[in-house]
Amino acid sequence: MHLFYTPDIQPSHPQYFLNEEESKHAVRVLRLELGAEVQLIDGRGGLYTAQIKDAHPKRTILQITNVITAYGKRNHYLHIAIAPTKNLDRLEWFLEKATEIGIDEISLIICQRSERKEAKTERLNKIITSAIKQSLKAYHPVLNEGISFNKFIAKSFDGQKFIAHCEPGVKLNLKEELRHGGNCLVMIGPEGDFSPAEISLALDNGYKALTLGESRLRTETAALEACFEVNFLNR
């Protein structure tokens, strides 16, 4: 069944009108006709089943036939703060795969050793939207605009906070530390890693040093590894 992302849909309304872009895709590309069934997701946990009442290429009318709330809601909250990679394709790859696996919030942090100082979130959000449609996720992860490391570290977070880095020293692993069903924030640094000053500041602000294994991982790989571990340990 074909799936559409409809963030403005309201559960109490029996009908929904696809915008022109989605209507054109439904009628001209997918060639859906009167009576065809489709699914809709609102990004807030709602999964809708609907039937086409008017297959118009500019304003297709849908009749809502079923609504499931909190569809696929997970028992935990995962926030990953990641330094944008020099090659933006690698960040896009992470966002796509992390969305498919399961993630709630992503923050882009600009660090002392960051080679990329900005990343346009409009395109990155489209990557996320495509991934939730592909993997049938009813929740759309939040993508925050880029922010400096110092400003981000000063923000409060109600849950466990970790910083993964490559500097020597005592580090914890998620298998032993992660609280099942809780909120978790993991920070992943740029290609050159966090600076010692940044690591020290994070520890002073309640973060715990984290290991993701013996291998030296790329930024996007480390972030995805953390995403996988948190989801796996919360099963």
Results as ranks from 00 to 15, higher is better:
132 I>N: 01
137 K>T: 03
151 K>M: 05
119 A>I: 12
209 A>C: 10
56 H>R: 10
158 D>W: 06
185 L>T: 13
73 K>I: 12
162 F>T: 07
210 L>Q: 02
161 K>C: 14
96 E>L: 11
196 P>N: 12
80 I>Y: 04
60 T>S: 13
103 I>M: 08
33 E>M: 09
16 Y>G: 00
126 K>C: 10
212 L>D: 00
3 L>R: 15
181 G>N: 08
12 S>M: 08
92 E>L: 11
214 E>A: 11
114 S>D: 08
134 Q>H: 12
17 F>E: 11
103 I>L: 13
15 Q>T: 13
53 K>W: 02
152 F>H: 13
1 M>K: 14
98 A>I: 07
47 L>S: 04
8 D>W: 04
66 N>R: 14
52 I>H: 02
194 F>R: 03
113 R>N: 14
193 D>P: 05
140 H>G: 04
8 D>C: 07
211 T>K: 08
81 A>M: 05
90 R>I: 01
11 P>V: 08
7 P>Y: 01
12 S>G: 04
229 E>H: 10
204 D>W: 07
36 A>G: 04
194 F>A: 11
114 S>P: 05
80 I>T: 02
69 T>C: 06
72 G>Q: 15
32 L>W: 02
81 A>C: 15
200 S>I: 08
140 H>T: 10
213 G>R: 08
1 M>F: 12
79 H>G: 07
175 K>R: 11
133 K>Y: 01
234 N>E: 05
190 P>N: 04
23 S>Y: 01
62 L>D: 00
90 R>S: 02
24 K>V: 10
91 L>S: 10
21 E>M: 12
206 G>N: 10
168 P>Q: 15
144 N>V: 05
43 G>E: 02
187 M>G: 09
159 G>F: 10
152 F>R: 03
121 T>E: 05
89 D>E: 15
91 L>C: 13
22 E>C: 04
126 K>Y: 13
22 E>D: 15
186 V>I: 15
148 S>I: 03
8 D>K: 09
221 T>K: 03
162 F>S: 08
32 L>I: 03
104 D>H: 13
102 G>W: 02
109 I>T: 10
118 E>N: 10
223 A>I: 03
189 G>E: 05
168 P>K: 15
169 G>M: 09
124 L>K: 07
57 P>T: 07
8 D>I: 08
203 L>E: 14
86 K>Q: 02
132 I>K: 01
36 A>L: 08
84 P>T: 03
135 S>W: 09
49 T>Y: 06
218 R>M: 06
30 L>A: 03
94 F>P: 01
166 C>Q: 14
46 G>I: 00
82 I>D: 00
23 S>C: 04
199 I>G: 05
235 R>L: 11
